[in-house]
Simulated assay, not measured.
Amino acid sequence: MADYALKAEIADPRAGAWDFPAQKTMYGGRRIAVGDVVYLFASENEGGTGLVARGIVTAAEATPPRPGIERQTPRVGIAVTRTALAKRRLGRAELKPFADWDDGRPETELNFKCYRQATNKIVGLSPEAAAFLSGFF
């Protein structure tokens, strides 16, 4: 089992389950599998507020590459069942001060992986970042 973060448009952050088809993956995100823990960030680019929930992956399937395109970011479709709602805020504004990419802090890892690029994506997390995020539930 591993821990991941997903930053995506989440229309209903309080829903009991979600489907996320064909999500971009970075930083080991393509290895996400059934049973893994995923921390859900409602993308601020789509009006979200950052960390909203934690869940368990109930389905994961790699999206086949589109023919005729040489370089493609791996994509995975996942289904997630919510296990907890975030009790306090964690988003772009809270993570922005952590920009010393070599300081080893979990906040910096999250800022780098989730917000350095604006794209929505699934990213793999270190045990330290996962432990930090678990404190929000």
Rank of each mutant, 00 (worst) to 15 (best):
Met1Pro: 07
Ala2Ser: 14
Tyr4Cys: 03
Tyr4Val: 09
Ala5Lys: 05
Ala8Cys: 03
Glu9Arg: 15
Ile10Thr: 00
Ile10Pro: 08
Ala11Val: 12
Ala11Glu: 10
Ala11Asn: 11
Asp12Cys: 02
Arg14Val: 02
Arg14Tyr: 04
Ala15Arg: 01
Gly16Cys: 10
Ala17His: 14
Asp19Lys: 13
Asp19Cys: 06
Pro21His: 07
Pro21Gly: 04
Ala22Val: 11
Thr25Glu: 05
Tyr27Phe: 15
Gly28Val: 10
Gly29Lys: 07
Arg31Cys: 06
Ala33Ser: 13
Val34Lys: 01
Val34Asp: 01
Gly35Tyr: 10
Gly35Asn: 06
Val37Asn: 07
Val37Gly: 02
Val37Glu: 12
Val38Arg: 04
Tyr39Arg: 00
Phe41Val: 12
Phe41Arg: 13
Ala42Val: 08
Ala42Arg: 10
Ser43Asn: 12
Ser43His: 02
Ser43Phe: 09
Asn45Arg: 14
Gly47Tyr: 06
Gly47Arg: 01
Gly48Ser: 10
Thr49His: 06
Thr49Asp: 02
Gly50Asp: 02
Val52Trp: 04
Val52Lys: 02
Arg54Cys: 12
Gly55Pro: 13
Gly55Cys: 08
Val57Asn: 11
Thr58Leu: 11
Ala59Lys: 14
Ala60Gln: 07
Ala60Ser: 11
Ala60Leu: 10
Glu61Gln: 15
Arg66Thr: 12
Pro67Ala: 15
Pro67Asp: 15
Pro67Glu: 14
Ile69Met: 06
Glu70Cys: 04
Gln72Cys: 07
Pro74Asp: 08
Ile78His: 07
Ile78Cys: 12
Ala79Thr: 07
Ala79Trp: 00
Thr81Glu: 15
Thr81Ala: 13
Arg82Trp: 12
Leu85Ala: 15
Arg89Ala: 10
Gly91Lys: 11
Arg92Pro: 01
Arg92Thr: 03
Ala93Asp: 12
Lys96Met: 15
Pro97Arg: 09
Asp102Trp: 03
Asp103Met: 05
Asp103Ala: 00
Gly104Ala: 04
Gly104Ile: 00
Pro106Thr: 03
Glu107Phe: 08
Glu107Tyr: 05
Glu107Gly: 08
Asn111Phe: 13
Asn111Gln: 11
Tyr115Gln: 01
Arg116Thr: 11
Gln117Pro: 00
Asn120Ala: 13
Lys121Asp: 13
Lys121Met: 09
Ile122Asp: 04
Val123His: 10
Gly124Ser: 08
Ser126Gly: 01
Ser126His: 04
Glu128Arg: 05
Glu128Cys: 05
Ala129Pro: 13
Ala129Phe: 06
Ala130Asp: 02
Ala130Cys: 03
Ala130Pro: 06
Ala131Ser: 14
Leu133Lys: 08
Leu133Tyr: 11
Ser134Lys: 07
Gly135Lys: 05
Gly135Tyr: 10
Phe136Ile: 02
Phe137Arg: 09
Phe137Pro: 00
Phe137Ile: 06
